[in-house]
């Protein structure tokens, strides 16, 4: 009987946890489909509308531009960071070169630097170069937080791959570069994909850099949220619609690689 109680208690707790996590997200999704008037009521009885999405994509909000900025900035950052990080991670993982520990520590320790420290000089530099409010500026600064993180993560994945296959390939007649291309990359592909998605999420959600470095042309989605705070007050239904636009692509990615995702979260950190 007691065991029965514990069993139900555990299920109840699981439900509670899921509700606490899902509720804020669900509420935002609901609000995104409400008319402005309904948004201010707590009633679940409303007729859903797509009007908010139409509004945010139209003038003056032009969410489409922000989506484009976010997509470009995140994609380009991933395309630069991940290949470079993969090579470095392989080197850190497989070779015992002089100064390796120091270099690795140096790269890791940059993770502990607050973003404000990095963005100050960049703000001044981009101001001089006339690069403020450009996607290029955002990409450069995003590389700063993303690259060390991705090196760390991919190294965790490569460390977990046994070296046997690589050695076999070298004996079979492959050069080191050939080994990387034929053996390491295909074997590390799930890890590299996971790291890419992590990298994409970090960049996509990045707020501080975009807040400081963009004004109008290069504004990304998270910063775009702030613009729905007007003199007429906060436009919650529009904010929610924009929130849905930020959230949906990321949720899809995270859920697609769900298994690797949790492994990626703990990769490196636990070791």
């Amino acid at each position: 009987m007691k065991r029965h109680l514990a069993w139900w208690g555990e299920r109840a707790l699981l439900v509670l946890v899921s509700v606490i996590v899902l509720f804020p997200i669900a509420w935002m999704f609901l609000t995104a489909f409400k008319r402005p008037r309904d948004a201010y009521s707590l009633s679940l009885d409303f007729s859903p509308t797509l009007q908010n999405f139409v509004t945010v994509f139209a003038d003056p909000w032009n969410l489409g531009d922000m989506v484009l900025n976010s997509v470009i900035v995140a994609t380009v950052t991933v395309l630069i960071a991940v290949p470079c990080a993969s090579l470095a991670a392989y080197s850190f993982s497989r070779f015992r070169v002089r100064g390796r520990k120091f270099l690795f520590f140096l790269i890791l320790s940059t993770q502990f630097i607050p973003a404000v420290v990095i963005v100050l000089p960049f703000f001044l530099m981009f101001r001089t170069l006339g690069l403020l409010d450009t996607r290029l500026a955002l990409i450069v600064v995003n590389l700063a937080i993303v690259t060390p993180f991705v090196i760390w993560m991919i190294k965790g994945f490569i460390d977990a791959i046994p070296t046997d296959s690589e050695e076999a390939a070298m004996i079979d007649g492959a050069s080191r570069l050939r080994v990387i291309k034929d053996i390491v990359l295909p074997m590390a592909a799930p890890g590299i994909l996971t790291s890419s998605i992590f990298c994409f999420i970090l960049t996509w959600n990045e707020f501080l850099f975009a807040l400081i470095l963009t004004r109008r042309d290069a504004v990304t989605l998270p910063v775009g949220l702030v613009s729905f705070r007007t003199e007429r007050g906060d436009l919650w239904e529009l904010m929610s619609a924009a929130g849905v636009m930020i959230t949906v692509p990321i949720f899809i990615m995270a859920l697609l690689i769900q298994k690797h995702f949790t492994r990626g979260m703990t990769a490196g950190a636990v070791k």
Binding site: P162, D164, S165, E167, A168, M170, I171, G173, I183
Partner: peptide, 16 residues
């Protein structure tokens, strides 16, 4: 290794 004209069988097979 590739120029030594050897072949090797590994403990964990080292298959691709």
């Amino acid at each position: 290794p590739k120029d030594r004209d050897i072949a090797m069988v590994f403990q964990n097979y080292g298959l691709y």
